[in-house]
Design a protein around this nucleic acid. Sequence first.
DNA 1: TTAGATATGGTCAAATATAGTCAGAGAAGG
DNA 2: CCTTCTCTGACTATATTTGACCATATCTAA
Lengths: 157, 157
Amino acid sequence: MTTLSDIIEKYILNTIQESNKGEILLKRTDLSGKFSCVPSQINYVINTRFTIERGYIVESKRGEGGYLKIVRIPVTETKIYLNKIQEETKSTITAEGARGFLNRLEEENIISKREKNMIWQLLKDESLPNDKDNKGYYRLKMLKNLIAYLIKEEEKK
Amino acid sequence: MTTLSDIIEKYILNTIQESNKGEILLKRTDLSGKFSCVPSQINYVINTRFTIERGYIVESKRGEGGYLKIVRIPVTETKIYLNKIQEETKSTITAEGARGFLNRLEEENIISKREKNMIWQLLKDESLPNDKDNKGYYRLKMLKNLIAYLIKEEEKK
DNA sequence: TTAGATATGGTCAAATATAGTCAGAGAAGG
DNA sequence: CCTTCTCTGACTATATTTGACCATATCTAA
């Protein structure tokens, strides 16, 4: 069974393909108009199909001149490695876990010592919400976005 | 996808560039005339784009002979600049404010483009708690810890 | 000297244009 | 059935544009 979400997904994939830049700009309402659905369905497609795990980064802007920007992260060896690390983490990560992870990235020469230190300033307990559970959750979210970026950068080499 | 505000911003940036002094004098009504908009839109552009986080100071004078003066902050002493920013930030900072600030750090060669991008991954809205008020609070906390680190590093030189 | 006229710029809230979230209804597959 | 995925719409968040009203500096005429 092909759902509307599948069709929208294919359309977006196709558009990215044709762009030859691995990146596109869309207007949410244009898309929902084209497929005669509510705008929030576009969010649904993006949230379920164009995730970091699948290799996409999505940015957006609201208001006049608003847009959706979908960027494809290309695949390489490094990406596979980083993905593996990413998979190892569960749904939350402790300060110690994050620190260990950053150390590992440094050991693998994926980031420098200085970069590690800078990132640590943002991930350490003192920087985050004073909320035991959510702390680990957001720390992981931040880390995942960082990894997605690193994957994209590695690909440029 | 480009708004009038973006166009006005580019025009001002360009004018500053051409002046070779990192500083310009404008008449608000001249600008609003040039771009066929209400005068207050110029204030909007200035308030959202030429902020202290992005490295600008704006002065003005009303009445006959009134003007807008936009000054690009020249930074010679990195530490002084960092301290100033740290003092000036209030109790919260928006994603845009943080981005502008990071761009500024990059322009001043305090951090690299890569470092900026990495840090951005942790500070952007998508990485933080979905909580309108606290988002800005924690973003600022993270940034301040980063600045503290950078100041310490600068001192080592 | 000073009050009023004139010339600017500033503030703020409403109107408009987008996009995001979330919970619940509906559909498809086991 | 039961679960999971999809679809929808009401409500929310944010960026831009506009205009009515406010504040201040300078000039001018009494």
